[in-house]
């Protein structure tokens, strides 16, 4: 069925391009909302693009003892995030590439990206780099299983671990209340905050040595390498938002048989993103940054909630 395949390829390509191009915008929107909510004057909406552009034009400065691993990691990171965007049904569920990797592989992909950036952070051998790597991996080993449990809850409901199938099944059902998904939703939100270096765990806006995680890891990067890393972080946030939409707000995605639905799937995605960005900013504004050793507690809660969601699913059958 060539038209079907063409349609799938088109959705695939469009989804990836939209993700890569809109991710910095989404980040800019979140930053703008945060500024408004805390009575600051906001940076321009397009600020992240400007930053990336500026960084791309500069000469890269590398530490003398940087190994090749250090230089390839930004590209691997960026590649991993774009690949992830190709698996997540953000616009339509007809994704030929998603056959290659289900939700478990997606979690694995995020883990791969994390391991690489942590290794790169340790490569120069500075005190901050290894501290950041340690903290990032600490967040990771609690957040990653929590994310997996969230996905499992949804896949127990749908009988599949493929994200497009999950989104399709959840969107196509008659309206029903799934308490287990409510648990999973709360857990997912907590994981999203932790994994994207948002406020209760990390603050993307500061370089405070006692608390920084993500920024500590990328201290030694500059210019195009840093641009790619920043872009990858924006993409990561975008990807998490889209995973959230696929699991908890799966309506309005284009199906395989209906390519024209893409026309209104795109504005709908925009609406969802605007709402999600505002919500994210609100959460960040009202919550306080946790001490670093409260972070495991926060994440362990997320993990427990996700497991609880799975239990509720099994026991209530809903």
């Amino acid at each position: 069925m060539p038209p079907m395949i063409m349609n799938g390829l088109f959705t695939q390509l469009l989804g990836a391009i939209v993700a890569v191009s809109l991710a910095p915008l989404f980040l800019g929107w979140v930053n703008q909302c945060r500024a408004w909510l805390s009575n600051r004057s906001a940076p321009p909406l397009l600020q992240p693009y400007l930053v990336i552009r500026k960084l791309l034009h500069k000469d890269a400065v590398l530490a003398e003892n940087a190994s090749p691993l250090f230089r390839v990691v930004p590209y691997i990171l960026f590649g991993a995030m774009v690949t992830a965007a190709a698996i997540i049904p953000s616009l339509g569920t007809a994704l030929p590439f998603a056959v290659c990797a289900d939700a478990i592989a997606l979690v694995g992909l995020f883990a791969t990206a994390r391991v690489f950036i942590a290794l790169a952070a340790m490569d120069i051998g500075t005190a901050f780099g290894s501290m950041g790597a340690r903290r990032e991996m600490m967040v990771g080993f609690l957040a990653e299983p929590a994310l997996l449990m969230v996905v499992f809850t949804a896949s127990l409901i749908c009988g599949s671990t493929a994200l497009p199938t999950i989104a399709d099944t959840l969107a196509g059902r008659t309206l029903a209340i799934y308490p287990s998904l409510a648990f999973a939703g709360v857990a997912f939100l907590m994981v999203l905050l932790a994994e994207n270096a948002r406020i209760p765990i990390d603050n993307p806006a500061t370089h405070l040595e006692l608390t920084m995680i993500h920024e500590a890891m990328v201290l030694e990067y500059s210019a195009r390498h840093l641009a790619l890393i920043e872009w990858a972080s924006a993409l990561k946030l975008f990807n998490y938002a889209c995973i959230g939409f696929a699991l908890f707000l799966p309506w309005g995605l284009a199906h395989e048989d209906n390519p024209l639905a893409l026309l209104w799937a795109l504005p709908l995605l925009g609406l969802k993103l605007i709402a999600a960005g505002a919500g994210l900013a609100l959460i960040e504004t009202v919550s306080a940054k946790l001490r670093i050793f409260r972070a495991p507690e926060f994440l362990a809660m997320a993990f427990m909630l996700a497991v609880l969601g799975l239990l509720v699913r099994l026991l209530l059958g809903s």
Binding site: V61, A63, E220
Partner: peptide, 8 residues
Amino acid sequence: VRLSAPWD
């Protein structure tokens, strides 16, 4: 690319 001492 320029090489220099680590910033840290």
